[in-house]
Structure formats: C-alpha cells, structure tokens
Design a protein around this nucleic acid. Structure first.
Lengths: 349, 349
DNA sequence: ATTAGCACTCGTTCCTCTTGAGTGCCAGCT
DNA sequence: AGCTGGCACTCAAGAGGAACGAGTGCTAAT
C-alpha cells in the first residue's frame, strides 16, 4: 500500500481542489466533479485511482460507498499547513479593524472588546480574546469615597487606564477628609508600584507595626489591602463574542453539539487552557477538530494568533467555527486583528 | 354553539388538569388519560363531550383528528389567570435569593446582575432585568487624572454607588494639580446635583461667560461636559442571563426559532418596549405567546414583575421560556426576586 | 499510465400498508 | 337530562419495499 509520504504532484493538487470544493458547498466531492473542476486533463477514472491513494493515506474518506469523499482531519491539516492560498484582507475590513480597535478614547478593556466583536463580525463565527497577562500592573491612583454608614467606595486606577472599583465594609465610619488623608498617604507611598508588591507590602506593614499604629491607621491599611486585593484575580480571563453566530452552520444543527460548544465557552477553563498553549507559537495557529485534545471541538476548528504589548506576548485571540471554514479568509483576518491589537496596545503605553 | 362564558365546574377542572398534564409531559392529552387523572368518576366518553365544549370555546384544540388536545393560548391564559396553583418558594431558593442579591459590598449594577443570573439559574430559562430608569441620578464626585499626553481620565461617581469612567481627549496637557483644582471647582459647584441639570448648566455656563473665562477654564468646562455626557444614555438598558438554557427545550429544537429568539435578545429594542409596558402593572404579569404583539415570541411566554426603589417603580425583571412552562413555580420565583431586589435597592439608599 | 465500460453499493425518495391512539356520534341506560 | 358503552372513522407514525441515481472499484483495452 501507499503509506509513503511523497505525495505526487497530482495528488496534492487534487486534495487541494477537493478541500476547497468541500469547504464551499459542504457535500462530499465525487470523482466527476473533481475532474471537471481540477483543471487537469484526465478522466474521472484516473482521478478515482488517485483518490483511492489519498484515502489509503488517511487524507480523505467517504461517508459511505456510494458517496464522494470528504477531507479527514489529517486532510484538513495538510491543506492548512501547506496548500491553503490565503486571500489578502479586503481594504474595508482592514480600515475597519484599524479604526475601531485603535481609538484614543478607549482603555485596554474597551480595545480588547472591540477586537473581539470585530473578529466575530468579520468572520461570522464566535471569537475569543484572552485578556492580557500582565506581570506588571502598577498603581496609578487610589481614591476613597464615603458612602452610607460604614461603607466606603474604593476606586483604583492602574497603569492600563483601567478603573476598578469596589465597595468596602468598615467597622466605623470615616469622614471625607479622613479618607482623603488616607488616600494621600497611600498614593504617596505606593504610586507607580507593582500591584502585587503593594499587596504584599501592605500585609507585612500591618504585621510589623501594628502596635505603633493608631486604630484609624490600622483600619486604613486594612481598607487599602481590600481595595488592592479585589482587583486583579477576579477579572474575567477572556471575552467571547458572537457565539450565536454558530447557529447558522449546519454542522451544529443537532442541538446537542451546539450545547456542548456553548458550555465549553461558559466553562472557560478548558478554553483558556487551550489558548494558553498558543501563547508560545509565533504566528497564526490552527487547531483542527479534536487535535486540541478536547472532545467538544469535534467538528470545530480554532484559529488563533498571539498579540503583543511591547516585545512581549501578552495574550491570544482567535475564532471558533466549523472545521469546514474558509481558512483562506479567516487566517489573514485573525492574523491582522492580532497585529492591529498589538499596535493599539503599544500606542497606549 | 356554546360560546357562553359560564364554564361548568367540571369543564374548569378538566381544563386545569389538562393544562397541568400537558405542561408536565408536553404531549397532547387524550380523554382516557384525563379520565384517569382527573379524579372525577366519569367515563372517558363524558369527558370527550366536555372536551368538545372546551374546544368550541377555543380553550383547547387538537393538532389533528386522532390526537389528544393541547391548550391554546386562550386556554393557557385562563389557566394562568384563574386556576394555576402557585407553589410556595422552596426555602433554599428564598435564602439563596436573599443572600446573593443583597450584599453590602455590591453596587447597583452588581445587585441587578446577581438578580438576573439567579433568576435564570432557578427557573432554568433566560432572564431579563431592565436597568432602573432613575429620574434622579445625582453627582456624588468627579475626579480627573492625567494619562499620556493630551489624554485625561474622568471618573464619575453617582448617588447609586456607580463608577463611570471615560477617557477624554484634550487640546493641551494638564498637570495633576491643575486637574485637581478643576475637579475641586466642579465638585464644589455641582455635588449632589441632578446629572441632567449639571449637563445643561455646563452648556449655558460655557455660552454665557465664554469671554470672562481664561482658556484653561474653558477647556475644563468642556472636559466636565464630556465627562458628564458620557455616562447615562450609553449604559445598557437591560441585562440578559442564561439565553443558552433555552436550548434545552424541544419547543426550540428547530434552529430557526431559536435563532429568532436570540436575535430578539440582541436587538433589545422590542424587548425593552415590551418590558416597558409592564412597569405600570402592579404584580406579576404573564404574556403568553404572541399576546405581546411580537411574533418572535411564538411559542414563548414572558413572566415579568416590576421592582421598586422606595415607593416608585423603577424597573422590570422577568424570564422568557416556552409557553409550556411550570407557571406554578416560575411565577412565585419572579415575584419574589422582584421583591428581594426592591428591598436590596432600598437598603442601599 | 490512462481510460471506457460495467457491475455493484447504498443513501434518498416515494409509495403503500399496518398499527394504534384518539375522536365523534348514537342508542340505550339510569 | 345526563352518562356510558359501543362502534365507525381519522390520521400520524412507522415499517417495508421498489425505483433512482450518484458514486465507487475493478478490469480489459489503448
């Protein structure tokens, strides 16, 4: 048998045409259709022979005897890796990406969310953006405001132009000026510091000089601690857009499959784990079907690309759709979105 | 024929049992099943006669000759209005509602979002919470922070413990102390004022004394204007949870129906319009099928209840699910959620 | 190596038949 | 008058089977 890797020129060409055709109309492709569309001047019988070889190599298979062939995962893999002819991005799409992702009046969160929704809008599939893993979130400013009795609003601004706010319970009420003093002390001591560091220093501070501090100061340090602790870990680790677009593909016409996918999105855990792996890869990466190691991506593919802040890769974005997707268009869109997002982040400092 | 309204005792009872049965297992109910489950000591033939009456009145109908009967919209209407026996809320559910909705450390947004997600979790359907329409959103505090060149972060705290923030473009850069002064002036002038009012006063202010102000002051007033304008209108008018729960009902097994519904949720417009109407009603309200006037609620019902802040109705919440839903359980849940939400809002001031 | 030809396979569609749940009506019973 | 048993009737759902056609694999000829 031919388990030999050296695929003939013709076989390669036929696989390419077959996959392209199948992506277009979803039905199994027969030898006659192929002989008409391949541009080759050979009969369908010849093509049948070649197809037989391709099947033996596990690149295509027929759902039943009297149907045409459809690509296997392995077939898609080969196609994506070495024969997909990526289409250049359309001008409109490019300008849309640039205009709507960048934007001086946006903070990090908003920029990410634009990227996510554009990605889903252009590809007509579900999109995912993993929120940056900054090692260095630093404190820009902290502010306390009195609310009703015993409640204080803490507002924290980070170097990413992000505003986090949290309501704190305190044992006693503070006046506005007390709070202002507290915030002043805090800002003077910690401005520009890494949030992680601030957190740990506050703990030790409280331990060390407990006796030296008056009761009010203790309260204040405690409040600061709470305010700083709230922020980072609880923030959502990814944002998803356009899940419901997946309803338009017949691949997911059985409700069960669709439900599985939706669940996968809400579970997040596995999703994040998958995306995490892509941080290391350099450019666009494509997971086909269960390659990812997760059964819920049965008939799905995931196309991802990492994005940067400065020189460092800080996150990953991508789209999820049926394995039978227009890779030639999706790949460049994902690629470009990552690039535009990177430059938007960089121009924000 | 009998279009007479006075329904016999027996007919009422049979309708009730029929609807309950149909809600439980979804299949058309025949005369024999009914005669067994109704508790009445009459034969199936007698029941057939009564069912015939019910059909003549448009309360039930059979999908085809040889099937049992299912309730019509009108039948559901009567059932819901005058014979559903609401189940008391389970203790766990009640405490869950109270604990997770109230919570001193939550602001208005968070409280609403808890209500929404609990509602959907308990009923296993999609839930909607319309965000309060406050006439009186007042200014508690404004703060300006310098970002990179020519960009300023405005942080606005309202009387609802909500923090809104927006990045502003300015013609020239401001120092931190300039900004502090500006904020001071602003807070002293406008603290406690209605945001709408602040907005309009800023406009006239700028008009009136343009010449008297120095260039910096003009800039500042303009900034303040932007900061205040951003806030209110853009906020989402409703929050939705658990849409994907609807996938579990066979009523929506045809993708098209489901898609329509999902779209209705994203369109928001019609949804909000419907909910708006419920503000006037006093307690729980049920819309069955297309009663609402929107075709996308074809096989759906919507159960809503208004909630209060103080004595005033400020918003509406509800769930959306198949018409064939367990009204006896859903109605009290929606009712109670509205009540718990009201008291949570009130205890926040 | 390529191809025309042919037998074969198997999903799809359409038809028919059977089954069974459920109805409506009527004649007789209380 | 109201209830009931009996009976003919309807119709969806399911099973079985024939006709069709797209597509294959194999073989013998070029």
């Amino acid at each position: 048998m031919s388990s030999e890797l050296p695929l003939t020129e013709r076989a390669q060409h036929l696989l390419k045409v077959l996959v392209e055709h199948h992506i277009r109309d979803g039905k199994p492709v027969g030898s006659t259709t192929l002989s008409r569309n391949s541009g080759l001047k050979v009969s369908s019988a010849t093509i049948r022979n070649t197809m037989s070889d391709l099947e033996a190599m596990g690149l295509i298979h027929s759902p039943h005897t009297s149907a045409g062939r459809i690509p296997t995962q392995k077939g898609y893999r080969l196609f994506v890796d070495s024969m997909v002819a990526v289409q250049p991005l359309q001008r409109v799409e490019l300008t849309q990406l640039q205009q709507e992702i960048s934007g001086q009046e946006k903070n990090t969160q908003e920029v990410l969310s634009s990227a996510s929704s554009l990605l889903s809008q252009i590809t007509q599939m579900a999109s995912v953006v993993m929120v940056p893993r900054h090692e260095r979130v630093t404190l820009r400013h902290l502010e306390f405001l009195p609310l009703s009795e015993g409640r204080v609003l803490a507002i924290l601004v980070t170097n990413l132009d992000e505003v986090q706010n949290r309501i704190l319970q305190t044992d006693r009420s503070f006046t506005e000026s007390e709070l202002r003093q507290a915030a002043n002390w805090f800002n003077q001591t910690f401005e520009g510091e890494d949030l992680e560091l601030v957190r740990s220093r506050l703990v030790t501070e409280l331990e060390r000089s407990k006796s030296e501090m008056d009761e009010a100061m203790q309260q204040i340090v405690q409040m600061a601690q709470q305010a700083v602790t709230s922020g980072e870990p609880n923030r959502d680790q990814m944002m998803v857009s356009g899940r419901s677009k997946l309803m338009d593909y017949n691949e997911f016409s059985e409700m069960d499959r669709l439900r599985q996918l939706f669940n996968a999105f809400s579970e997040k855990r596995d999703m994040i784990h998958l995306l995490d792996q892509c941080m290391e890869a350099d450019g666009v990466q494509v997971f086909i079907g269960e390659e990812s190691g997760y059964q819920f991506f049965d008939e799905c593919s995931v196309v991802t690309a990492p994005y940067r802040h400065g020189d460092e890769v800080v996150g990953v974005l991508g789209v999820v759709g049926p394995t039978r997707m227009a890779y030639d268009r999706v790949i460049p869109v994902v690629d470009m979105t990552a690039k535009v997002l990177s430059s938007a982040l960089n121009s924000m400092g």
